[in-house]
Design a protein around this nucleic acid. Structure first.
Lengths: 334, 334
DNA sequence: ATTTTAATTGTAATCGATTACAATAACCTC
DNA sequence: GAGGTTATTGTAATCGATTACAATTAAAAT
């Protein structure tokens, strides 16, 4: 392997000088610089990053922990992260947990072992004290999810108000029997969306029957299954709000399987606005999250944390949007 | 920061001994081991991986270069890679090129700089000599794509025979005017799928009119646009084979937009079997690639390369499968 | 009890860079 | 040209682990 001292020897200078040329620190004579560059060229020298990292105690790598990389929602956020990472000479280490808390925990060691300068979590199922502890010691940013009462910097939308907005939209269309398919209630953002739903219903004095709220797990299949439960009721809901798009599409599938139509028989609203939602038929009305922007912002914050810059605030709330497409319709009693 | 010498001091032994305890190399007395472990516990010591890596000249990290992480096809392959990686204590550095050759090239430096022990490419748009060169120096495995006449280890399906299989299926249904929407023809796997299509047609003595072959770019939109071209013909094809599922779905959208029906008016076959294909309506008939398996196999090969084990062969061809769903129908002349 | 052998531990070099500090060279100023 | 200043370069310590080799200790063999 070609090392810095090989270069130094060939160029007839010290390793210090080669290093200085490499880092563009300035104080090297032109001729010397040229000699060194020539030697570098001739030997096809590439600095060993490990050695540099060890010396500087930084890795220029950040870790992103994702609950499910095959979900396009997360891969879009990841894209935003990568975008900013590359601009700032960072590399992205990917940790896919496959929705497994154990693996989420395992990835913390990468930080502890200094294999990454910081971490962005797109999932926060871990015990909060664990997270707080590691965030006290290393730069950590939460994206999408957050931790109640925590000071860990967070980027997300306001899930409560978004869910309220979507629910109100259905209410304004005249719906009163509205079903809600929630995400797993052990994650806070599921609880928030449920809360938003409840708030909107309460505001309009519409009582919520308990069997009209069902807990899914964000998967297509769970959306299908929960909708089937709704359809088995004597009086099925006239509209359904699912806490993410995959479940919403699962619900539509279920409705279709009974020979009913969306939106004519039942209206459906989703959450996230993944790519498939606009392609599917009927095109899904949904809350659109700025996925790319969330990723970008999260990475920007992380870089600030790494550089020990001051943050203006800890909670960054980005704008979401209700995208009205084809799955909702005014309620007309039959 | 807590270092190995802090531990050594507290346990009253040398750093060498601590290191031996850490690596479980055996030759340490029980009592000493306990003393050391106790010190490690007490100080909450975590070895600095950078230092270890520098000394051992290995990173236990591999690089995966993906053309588009938001495509679920690639994220599934990635899942397979990660599965094997974790089992073998490797971490995965993700390189998403966003279909940009420049960025693909950039990621090679990560290998050169020893930031990763090896690389899996899910894309191979680079100049082949560059790839050959880097593969000569570092462990590299190609997955999905391959390089003509190259000895770089490769995992993929047999794209030619799969495309032939799909085409023959349409032919056997009675179709003669079959349109083909190819992927970008600068990537070999697109050319292979086209070749398979041509072979099947030739075998059945069906001439291919040039305007029945259109080049897309694997995106939903391009599938839509190319299908629109077909539909503008005097005699549109009675069946269409798209080189991936996204384009196939785009094509179906185009067909529907003209008030026509799939499969009654036009049959459609896709390629890949991404998750959405079974959810979409009509459910897509397609060639199913073993994405997870491809990823697993690729990582297994890479590990062998890294360990300098002998490979049995350079080309690993996995089984694909024609999945018949709802988008094809026998041709009946009208 | 002494020698031989095996088990355990320590010392110090090493991986390949960066950088504080020291040394030298080059350039001014009067 | 002496003295001072600045620019350039070199020496060697350093980052935190691993490991070859040496040294010591303990156990076994005679």
């Amino acid at each position: 392997m070609v090392t810095i001292s090989d270069v130094a020897k060939l160029a007839n200078v010290s390793t210090a000088t080669v290093s200085r040329v490499l880092s563009n620190s300035g104080n090297v004579k032109k001729e010397t610089t040229e000699k060194v560059l020539e030697a570098i060229q001739k030997l096809n020298y590439q600095p060993n990053i490990l050695a540099r990292q060890l010396r500087k105690l930084e890795t220029k790598t950040i870790l992103v922990v994702v609950p499910d990389i095959t979900n396009t929602f997360f891969s879009k956020v990841l894209r935003g992260i990568e975008h900013v990472a590359i601009e700032n000479d960072y590399e992205v280490l990917l940790g896919d947990t496959g929705n497994n808390v154990e693996r989420e925990r395992g990835y913390l060691d990468i930080l502890r072992q200094k294999k990454a300068d910081g971490m962005i979590l797109l999932t926060a199922r871990l015990e909060s004290h664990l997270l707080e502890e590691i965030a006290g010691e290393f730069p950590v940013v939460l994206a999408c999810e957050y931790l109640e009462g925590s000071t860990i910097p967070t980027v997300s939308i306001d899930n409560i108000s978004s869910a309220r907005k979507a629910t109100e939209y259905l209410i304004n269309l005249g719906h009163r029997r509205i079903g809600f398919i929630s995400g797993p209630l052990n994650v806070i953002l599921s609880r928030d969306r449920l809360k938003g739903f409840r708030q909107a219903m309460a505001q309009h004095n519409i009582p919520i029957e308990s069997f009209l709220v069902q807990e899914g797990d964000f998967s297509f299949e769970s959306g299908y299954n929960m909708m089937m439960k709704f359809l088995a009721l004597d009086q099925p809901p006239t509209a359904v709000f699912a806490a993410n798009d995959e479940m919403a599409i699962g619900a539509i599938k279920a409705i279709k399987s009974k020979g009913l139509h969306v939106p004519d028989d039942i209206s459906v609203v989703g959450f996230d606005d993944i790519k498939f939602s606009s392609i599917y038929e009927p095109a899904l009305t949904t809350i659109s999250q700025p996925m790319f922007e969330i990723g970008k912002k999260a990475m920007e914050l992380l870089i600030k944390l790494i550089n020990k810059d001051q943050l203006e605030k800890n909670q960054y709330i980005l704008e979401d949007q209700l995208v009205i497409r084809e799955t909702c319709k005014e309620y007309v009693s039959k």
